[in-house]
Computed example of a mutant assay.
Amino acid sequence: MSLLKAATSLAARAVTQRAISTSVPKLGAHDDIMEKWPADRFDKHFIDYLSRPEIDGWEVRKALSELHDFDVIPAPKVVEAALRACRRVNDYSLTLRFLEAIKIKCGTGKNRELVYGYIIDQVKPVLDELGISTPEDLGLHKPELFIPQAEYWWERKWYKEYGYDKKPGYEF
């Protein structure tokens, strides 16, 4: 009887130890922040981070990459803070890529025109103040050397977006 009790207690201790030693705490994910934080706290986090005077180029890229990983379109206040941070580290190309990323996040069709247009209208004073042109102002919103090719069927989705659906010879 005592042998059975000893074996049971050893087995129970081994299971307990195994469960404790193999259990891994869930590391913080992006989705946790979105679920726990209200929208204003989320915006404040990025605005405060990007508004730091000692921020460097790596930290700006890190913040913008992290912001892009979330499944949200940033509020105009956050976009303004990001544009000011890009200008502070003197990285003009990053401002253009950030604006392009926002445009991509806005979806397609009329939704893109409405949401992206709204954001650009809201941050226009900051763009003018900092001397930043949008990709549309610079003519970068359409590819310069795009030539449609019939054998690449996956490109057809871009034909209409870039105006090739109205040109003769590109009908499929």
Results as ranks from 00 to 15, higher is better:
E59F: 05
K36I: 13
W58E: 11
A81P: 04
D31I: 13
W58Q: 11
A63H: 09
D69K: 11
G57C: 02
I55M: 12
L50A: 07
H68C: 01
A81R: 04
E35A: 15
D69G: 02
F46N: 09
P76G: 02
H68E: 04
I47Q: 01
W58F: 12
D40P: 00
V60L: 05
F46E: 10
V72W: 01
L50D: 06
K77H: 04
E54M: 06
P38L: 13
M34V: 15
K44S: 10
S65A: 11
V79A: 08
E80H: 00
H68T: 04
D71Q: 10
I55D: 08
D43P: 05
I73R: 03
F46D: 08
G57W: 00
I47M: 08
D48W: 00
F70E: 03
F46M: 08
A63C: 11
H68I: 00
R41K: 13
A81H: 05
K77D: 14
I33L: 15
G57E: 11
H68D: 08
R61C: 14
A75E: 11
E35W: 05
E35F: 08
D40Y: 10
E35C: 10
I47N: 01
D69A: 15
R61V: 07
V78K: 07
E80K: 11
V72F: 06
V78A: 01
E80I: 14
D43Q: 15
L50Q: 06
F70H: 14
W37Q: 14
M34D: 10
V78Y: 07
L64Q: 14
A39L: 10
L64F: 12
V60K: 05
L50H: 08
A39F: 07
P76A: 04
F42D: 11
P74A: 05
E59W: 05
A39V: 11
E59K: 13
D48A: 07
F42N: 09
A39W: 01
V72Q: 09
E54N: 14
R41H: 10
K44Q: 12
L64I: 15
E54C: 07
W37K: 10
P38H: 15
V72R: 15
H68N: 12
D48P: 00
V79R: 07
L64E: 13
D43V: 02
K77Q: 12
P76W: 05
V78D: 01
V60W: 04
V72H: 06
E59I: 00
D48Q: 09
F46L: 10
Y49Q: 04
L67T: 03
P76H: 06
D40E: 14
R52D: 04
R61Y: 05
D71L: 03
L50R: 09
L64A: 14
I33Q: 09
I55A: 13
D31V: 13
R52N: 03
S51R: 07
V79G: 03
R41W: 06
E66G: 08
L50P: 07
D32V: 03
F46V: 09
A75Q: 11
D69Q: 12
D43C: 13
A82F: 02
I47C: 07
P76Y: 05
S65D: 11
D32H: 11
L50E: 06
V60T: 03
K44P: 00
P74V: 06
E80T: 13
I47A: 00
D69C: 09
L50W: 11
K77R: 14
D69I: 02
A39C: 02
